[in-house]
């Protein structure tokens, strides 16, 4: 049983991993055919991975409703929302428009999903002003450098800021605020990001090797 439960899955990850890795360096027809098949399969398998999230969400809220847990009434709206898209989707066979006219699915997207998703993220803008006032403290030389970079970007990213800079400092003949932003983006930012990038890649490569050779297997769950 241990073979079926543990060793075959570990063999799968190793064989699939090593063969896929090899396709990068061996551009032969056979390796292309292998990669092509695996690409097709991967699309299907990862499509099913979505079901994990869906079942988990629906089960959680179903249990809440059945057990009349705190706030169970709100859980009904999870199902209502789900059906408000799935039923129109099935009726219109997944099409959002028919000859330039919105189908019921297209309508649900435009007037339901669209405002819900965008407002959820738009709310975060309010916390930016709150953070700016309450938490942005210039207490050290490092924080001062951070503030200067932020200040230049916030000011120079909008036309009014560019105009203000030119009006106040234009007479000096010094560089424009956009030149400074450009320099920040092209020099110190590149240096910092490159350092981060190289560091992350080393970590990612080590993790990938650990996965392929079965050293990292947390994703498999407990034995």
């Amino acid at each position: 049983m241990l073979i079926i439960k543990k060793y075959i899955p570990l063999a799968i990850v190793m064989i699939v991993g090593l063969l896929t890795l090899a396709t990068y360096y061996v551009p032969a027809k056979a390796s292309q055919a292998y990669l092509s098949t695996l690409n097709q399969w991967e699309v299907i398998v990862s499509g099913f991975a979505f079901l994990l999230g869906l079942i988990s969400l629906l089960m959680t809220h179903y249990k809440k409703i059945v057990r009349h847990e705190d706030g169970w009434g709100y859980s009904i709206f999870v199902f209502l929302g789900f059906l408000a898209v799935v039923i129109p989707g099935i009726i219109s066979h997944g099409a959002q428009a028919d000859n330039g006219t919105l189908t019921s699915l297209g309508w649900s997207f435009r007037y339901l999903y669209n405002p819900l998703a965008s407002t959820m993220f738009a709310v975060l803008a309010f916390y930016i002003v709150s953070t700016a006032f309450r938490s942005f403290r210039i207490k050290s030389a490092q924080a001062f450098v951070l503030f200067i970079a932020a200040f230049i970007l916030i000011l120079g990213n909008v036309p009014a800021g560019q105009m203000l800079w030119d009006t106040l400092l234009g007479w000096t003949g010094c560089c424009s605020i956009s030149d400074i932003i450009q320099w920040i983006m092209q020099v110190p930012s590149v240096a910092a990001k490159r350092g981060i990038m190289i560091g992350i890649t080393i970590g990612a490569v080590v993790t990938s090797l650990k996965i392929i050779f079965g050293i990292e297997r947390q994703y498999m769950g407990r034995d």
């Binding site: 930016i128 002003v129 006032f133 932020a150 200040f151 909008v158 009014a160 800021g161």
Partner: peptide, 10 residues
Amino acid sequence: LSHMLVIILI
């Protein structure tokens, strides 16, 4: 205006 507001607040 909102960008100016953030600078003023900081």
